[in-house]
Amino acid sequence: MLFFSFFKTLTNQTVTIELKNDIRIRGILKSVDQYLNIKLDDIEVLDLAKYPHLSSVKNMFIRGSVVRYVMLPRSEVDVGLLEDATRREAANQAGKAR
């Protein structure tokens, strides 16, 4: 749940998402669910010349499994907290595996 928890804090931030088919989309992250499906608003496709069919798309829902990268605004990430959250997650996982 770490990534879900993490991405939830990024809602209403502008993120750039690179899909596994190399399309890069910048937009405002509206919501994320447990499968890391992503809803983007006000999107803008980088390298639009290559993907003209996306030129009129204003918002989209991206299936989590097709996302390769999510580029985040650095200022919106609390690194120390994220480290701790990661530790907790690891501890949780270890606890569950046992």
Partner: peptide, 26 residues
């Protein structure tokens, strides 16, 4: 907190928008 630590604490720190106290989406 165990499941949603980052979001919970981050919201407390940065005052992330939430509709009501129990809002965590899950």
């Amino acid at each position: 907190l165990a499941e949603d630590f980052y979001y919970q604490v981050y919201s407390q720190i940065r005052g992330a928008p939430r509709q009501h106290p129990h809002q965590p989406l899950g």
